[in-house]
Amino acid sequence: MRHEQHRCGVDHGRNHGRGFAARGMMKMMMGGRGPFGRGFGDFGGGFGGWDDESGGRGGRGGGRGRGRMFAGGELRLVLLRLVAEQDRHGYELIKAIEELTGGEYAPSPGVVYPTLSLLVDEGLLAEVAGEGSRKAFTVTEAGRAELAEKAGEADALVERLKAFGEQRQRHSSPPVRRAMHNLKVALGQRLMGGLDDGVAHQIADILDEAARRIERL
């Protein structure tokens, strides 16, 4: 009798633990804090999402230093290089960097525009009339001189952005991203409605089985 009570207690504890883990894992996938910390990958913050000196956001890996795309002063040089190619306004510069990375990274306007203002203050860029109310930027002689001195570094930065985009695209899969997004949406809908232990156990079983099948591929 005591043995049966002990076994029932163990089973109850195991099931309760699975329910807790399932709910925690789903919260983690949605970007919240689960039993193992913040979310991961496409499901939220954590693994892979990173910031840089520009406050931009990119893919789920790479970067410099502690997940930085640009080290100090590198964004400034990239912007100078892009404006030297042709006059551009701030949004066009953000899009140009995004295009260099194949859409995998875009710097934040919150630091791009102050960096452009700094380049103007330094006499390396000048403001010119743009389309409508937008002001564009053009490179000055002083800017071209600095760019000539740092041509090798500027070229390397541009190539690094291109390589980052190519690497990300090689290691990403649109069908897998779509499926991960669908899973995130489905889990989010279930979490909003609340979960009892029975449903949590069923979801945990489905996710466990999916993980096992993926491992066997």
Rank of each mutant, 00 (worst) to 15 (best):
residue 108 S to R: 00
residue 178 R to I: 10
residue 137 F to G: 09
residue 179 A to S: 08
residue 131 E to I: 11
residue 186 A to S: 12
residue 35 P to D: 04
residue 73 G to Y: 11
residue 146 E to G: 03
residue 53 E to R: 13
residue 162 K to A: 08
residue 113 Y to F: 15
residue 144 R to V: 02
residue 189 Q to G: 06
residue 43 F to T: 00
residue 111 V to C: 04
residue 52 D to C: 15
residue 28 M to C: 02
residue 44 G to L: 01
residue 75 L to C: 05
residue 196 D to G: 11
residue 60 R to E: 08
residue 164 F to Y: 15
residue 166 E to C: 00
residue 72 G to E: 14
residue 194 G to T: 04
residue 167 Q to H: 12
residue 13 G to I: 05
residue 122 E to N: 02
residue 6 H to Q: 12
residue 34 G to W: 08
residue 199 V to M: 10
residue 59 G to I: 09
residue 171 H to S: 07
residue 150 K to R: 15
residue 114 P to I: 13
residue 84 A to N: 10
residue 188 G to W: 02
residue 102 G to F: 14
residue 109 P to N: 02
residue 189 Q to D: 09
residue 207 L to S: 03
residue 216 R to M: 06
residue 79 L to C: 13
residue 90 G to A: 15
residue 22 A to G: 09
residue 147 L to Q: 02
residue 148 A to F: 01
residue 150 K to P: 00
residue 148 A to G: 01
residue 182 N to F: 07
residue 52 D to T: 11
residue 44 G to F: 01
residue 72 G to W: 03
residue 168 R to G: 00
residue 31 G to K: 10
residue 21 A to F: 04
residue 120 V to E: 14
residue 210 A to C: 04
residue 107 P to C: 10
residue 2 R to A: 14
residue 2 R to H: 09
residue 104 E to H: 11
residue 109 P to K: 08
residue 66 R to F: 14
residue 107 P to N: 08
residue 205 D to E: 15
